[in-house]
Simulated scan of single mutants.
Amino acid sequence: MNGLYALKPWYAARLAGVRGALVRREVSPDTLTVLGVVCAGGAAAALAWLPAPLAVLPVAVLLAARLAFANLDGALARDTGRTTPRGALLNELGDRAADLVVLAGFLTLAPLWLVALAALGATLPSWVSLAGAAAGAPRRNGGPVGKTERVLLAVVAAATGWAVPVLAVIAAGSALTALVRIGQLWKELGS
């Protein structure tokens, strides 16, 4: 079950021209990782301070850029032969930071406990994937509520003001995604 993650090859193909321009300009993949977190911060600020539906355009644009940077940083590193363990670490930390920063934008819209629960839930699928990779399994991505779905849900909240239901879906859906990944890994690593 890959969810919207199944669109990644299509999306990466759309970014090929941008990737080529970044290669020619010798942009560092780490710069793109940091820019993704900055875009997440901008989206969080718009979500927190602009009322729905005025927040939808800046949140959607900034989160689309966040996903683009998340796609481009690793691709650029591979294209230029600049993959490094430190770059991989920065990429993982940047992805987690961007997720948590976006969810922090909900602090003005929903109870702290629910934002914290959604933040915990949003990190669970990555913990499972990284644990599986550490055990020798291929990295798991996607799921019922993976990174791309969380971005889409934040845009829905920006458009509608439905912060509480969106956070509940993020929390529950992310936990379900983690369970699905655990089941896949358990089966794969047991054989």
Rank of each mutant, 00 (worst) to 15 (best):
A171D: 03
L112R: 13
V169Q: 04
V145M: 08
T31H: 02
E26S: 13
L63F: 01
G173E: 02
L189V: 15
A43F: 07
A175W: 07
K187A: 15
V164W: 06
P165T: 08
G136K: 03
P144G: 11
L54Y: 05
G20T: 07
L50Q: 00
R25L: 10
W10A: 11
S174G: 11
G132R: 00
A122N: 07
V166S: 01
L57N: 05
T84P: 03
W113L: 05
V166A: 00
L93F: 07
I182F: 11
A48G: 10
A48Q: 08
R25P: 08
V59N: 05
R78N: 14
L176T: 02
V164N: 04
T148L: 08
D73E: 05
S126A: 15
C39T: 09
L185S: 04
L117T: 10
R150T: 03
V155R: 03
L54N: 07
L93W: 06
E92G: 04
N141G: 15
L117G: 12
G183E: 09
P53D: 13
L176S: 03
W127G: 14
N141V: 14
P165V: 10
W49S: 09
G190R: 14
S28C: 04
T177V: 06
P29I: 04
P138K: 11
R25N: 10
A104H: 05
A131G: 14
A88W: 05
T123V: 10
V102P: 02
R82P: 14
E149M: 01
V101I: 10
G41C: 00
A175R: 08
L167D: 01
N141Q: 15
L63E: 03
L89A: 11
F69A: 01
A44N: 04
V34K: 00
P9Y: 09
E188K: 04
A97R: 01
W186E: 06
R14T: 12
L54I: 06
A134S: 13
R25T: 08
P125R: 07
N2Q: 15
P144N: 10
L32A: 00
W113Q: 02
L176M: 04
E92L: 03
Q184R: 10
L4I: 11
V156L: 14
G143K: 10
A168V: 13
A122S: 12
G190Y: 11
W10Q: 08
A119D: 09
V27N: 10
L35V: 09
L62Q: 00
W49Q: 05
L76E: 01
W186N: 03
G94A: 04
A55S: 03
A172V: 13
S191R: 11
V18M: 01
L117K: 06
G105D: 03
A104V: 07
I182M: 12
A131L: 13
A12Y: 11
I170G: 04
L189E: 13
V145E: 08
A98N: 01
V128W: 09
A60H: 13
V23L: 09
G183S: 11
L117M: 12
E26H: 15
V145A: 08
F69V: 00
L179S: 07
A97G: 05
Y11S: 12
G105C: 06
A64E: 02
R139V: 14
A168S: 15
L50T: 01
L7Q: 14
